[in-house]
Simulated scan of single mutants.
Amino acid sequence: MKRVLTLIFVFCLLLGLSSSSYAATEIKIGHVLTTDSAWHINLDGFAKEAAEQTEGRVIFKIYPGSQLGNEKDLIEGLMLQTVDGGLIGGGSFQSIDPRFGIEALPYAWKDHEAAYRAMDGEIGNFLLGILESKGIKGISWWENGFRHITNNKRPIMVPKDMEGLKIRVTPDKMRLDTFKALGASPIPINFGELYTALQQGVVDAQENPLGIIYANAFYEVQKYLSLSGHIWGSALLCVNSPAWKRIPDQDKPVVEALAHKWRDRERQQIMDEESDMLVKLKEKGMQANEVDKEAFKAAVQPVWNDYESVFGKDLMDLVRKYGE
């Protein structure tokens, strides 16, 4: 009997050790882009390496293509704790606080590096503090890239060429005001409906980074590509606070380090794609042209003036500091 009891004890002990060894924190990360986008490719690498380096204790499952909802849904889910996490365009967090629109001031950043310094520095830290107070842990600032204009009417070279153009924009007020200042007719349309809207002529134009233009085959329904580079956009890898707390303390620094590592790779891919995608879009038949950026920058200065009261002078001064 003693031998049987001993065997039962040892079996239960081994079972308990086995269970704890295989216990894992599983976190679902959603995003709205395709599986061949820089976002997804690098999220996949991040997730695989996180599983390896934490010996299976932290498992990130990636859900592309709006499987967990659009960006508005993801943010609402983070707040309600029905969504673990996401890689979400920084500007989409304006639904929480309008100051998240600061990165999208038209012609705020002269190049990628200026934007990186801002988001990895004082501006990014300020915005992460806002999210922390709302129950969201921002892990790392990734990138969506510079946006460019495509349309079916004519080449866009100077602001006057924008007059009367029906252009799809994201549904935030500053983006709408920016294109109104340029003389266009901005129309907010859900991204998932954009291809059809362009195909059916509901809108003449749209604006997105080159990688997204190519990945979503907008070249099939758009003729002209104008390299406006009018707005740069970040992307934030984030989770809700309870999901972050579920990650073992020993693994939190590992997750953050890997998020930064794959952020850097994603940023490099975005920059590499800009020249590569331009070639591919031309091969698909798009007519590409440069724009007079100084003329565009001058045309949107009223937007800067109007939004200083929204963002505050201190934050605007930081933009001027990093944007130089």
Rank of each mutant, 00 (worst) to 15 (best):
Y107H: 06
G89A: 03
I27G: 05
L194A: 15
R117N: 13
P171V: 07
S19Q: 09
G145Y: 03
G30C: 05
I27W: 04
G121W: 04
E256R: 05
A104E: 11
N144C: 05
V221E: 04
E143W: 04
Q287V: 15
W232V: 05
E55V: 01
W262L: 08
G138D: 01
L43W: 01
G45H: 09
D161A: 10
M162G: 10
T6V: 14
P248Y: 07
L13G: 05
L78E: 08
D73E: 04
I102N: 09
A104G: 13
A23K: 04
G77D: 13
A205T: 08
I96G: 02
G30W: 01
G89Y: 02
F126R: 00
G89K: 00
L225S: 02
H260E: 15
T35G: 03
M162C: 13
I213H: 12
G138Q: 00
N152S: 12
F9M: 12
V279S: 07
M271E: 15
L315F: 04
L182R: 11
L198A: 10
L278Y: 01
D73G: 02
K153R: 15
R147C: 05
G201R: 08
F191G: 15
F11K: 03
D276A: 04
Q287D: 09
K2T: 12
A108C: 06
A38I: 05
L14K: 07
N305V: 13
I123F: 06
K261L: 11
F191E: 11
G183C: 13
V169T: 14
W39M: 01
A118K: 06
L198G: 12
L5W: 10
M119G: 07
T35Y: 03
H148L: 07
F218H: 14
K284D: 01
A24T: 14
A235E: 09
W262S: 08
Y322M: 10
I136N: 01
Y219T: 02
W39V: 02
L43Q: 04
K72N: 14
L87M: 06
G65Q: 14
T178V: 15
Q200G: 05
G121H: 09
E308C: 06
I29N: 12
P171K: 10
E274S: 13
P242N: 12
S133R: 03
A295K: 14
V203D: 11
A299I: 01
L43H: 03
P209C: 08
G124A: 01
M157R: 15
H230I: 14
D84V: 11
G77K: 07
